[in-house]
């Protein structure tokens, strides 16, 4: 599903002493089945932006288009349900939303709300549990008995079970250990490929942007200040630093190498790209 923001503005608590700008004239397009990263430091408007993707917030002015659904200030709540179903949201620390008595019922909660029959919902729940790598024997346990990492998978399955076409991930790996992080990112990549999902990832991990994203949006002070491929975003390291953002580890290392006389056609963003660009600049093994 393609997504378009057309001059979207959002104002928090308008006409009160607490009035604050949430989004200021944001326009961009996300192609269907692409992987888009949203970066920017805390309070830059990232969360406000993603809450527009499924109508949790409605623009004060401007239009958000998701496939053929148009979200404007006038959209009534009744019409939001299909948008909620088609755009799945995994919030930060999603395990905090678990509530039901068993893992199975918690995962089936979304599908039941969206009007699937009990039988369909259970079958979708089992499929989603399988997709996120939860063993069957956990399905009848209470979600509160599981480990932190397992609880997070239950919560993600609870979003996937409603069969969204767009998956919005707000720092989905926060608080996990390195192996957990790597496994979870690999899982999202696989889900995207298997289910032809459009993925939107809010993250502070520039290495994940380099490894997974097709395009990135940079937010600052409620504005979209740059959009492009990761290579375009990180092409100017001075600009990146001025935005208080980091470079991917490999790009940072490559920067150091440049001061030592190495040359790169474009700034390498991953260890693999860096090694490839070092061919010809370093001796071969066994020579």
């Amino acid at each position: 599903m393609a997504i378009t923001f057309d001059h979207v503005n959002y104002m928090y608590q308008p006409n009160s002493p607490f009035e604050a700008v949430g989004l200021s004239d944001v326009s961009f397009t996300v192609p269907s089945e692409s992987f888009t990263a949203i970066i920017g430091h805390t309070g830059s408007g990232k969360s406000t932006l993603v809450q527009h993707l499924n109508g949790l917030l409605k623009p004060t002015s401007g239009t958000v288009t998701v496939d053929d659904f148009q979200l404007t200030a006038k959209t009534t709540n009744k019409h939001l349900k299909s948008l909620h179903q088609h755009v799945g949201m995994v919030f930060q620390f999603p395990e905090n939303q678990l509530f039901d008595q068993t893992v199975e019922r918690d995962i089936a909660f979304g599908p039941l709300n969206f009007g699937f029959t009990n039988e369909e919902a259970m079958s979708l729940a089992h499929q989603a549990a399988h997709d996120v790598g939860l063993p069957d024997e956990l399905l009848n346990r209470s979600p509160f008995e599981l480990s932190g990492g397992q609880m997070r998978r239950v919560a993600i399955a609870g979003v996937l079970a409603s069969q969204p076409r767009v998956l919005v991930l707000d720092e989905p790996t926060a608080g996990l250990d390195p192996r957990g992080r790597a496994e979870m990112m690999a899982m999202f990549a696989k889900l995207k490929a298997d289910q032809q999902l459009t993925v939107i990832l809010v993250t502070h991990q520039m290495d994940d942007v380099a490894d997974y994203a097709d395009q990135a949006l940079v937010m600052a002070h409620s504005n979209l200040i740059k959009a492009g491929t990761p290579a375009e975003i990180f092409a100017n390291p001075e600009w990146v630093k001025a935005q208080q953002l980091a470079l991917p580890t490999a790009a940072n290392f490559a920067q150091h190498l440049v001061t030592r006389g190495f040359e790169f056609d474009s700034l390498p963003l991953t260890a693999e790209q860096l090694a490839i660009q070092l061919r010809g600049q370093l001796p071969k093994e066994g020579r």
């Binding site: 809450q51 499924n54 949790l56 709540n77 009744k78 349900k81 909620h84 179903q85 755009v87 799945g88 949201m89 919030f91 930060q92 999603p94 905090n96 939303q97 909660f109 979304g110 039941l112 709300n113 969206f114 609870g158 979003v159 409603s162």
Partner: peptide, 19 residues
């Protein structure tokens, strides 16, 4: 804040709080 986040998460899972 937490209540707001949970409400958003459940609304995204199809719960209608005002209906």
């Amino acid at each position: 804040d937490e209540a707001q986040t949970i409400m958003n998460a459940q609304r995204a899972r199809g719960v209608e709080f005002n209906n």
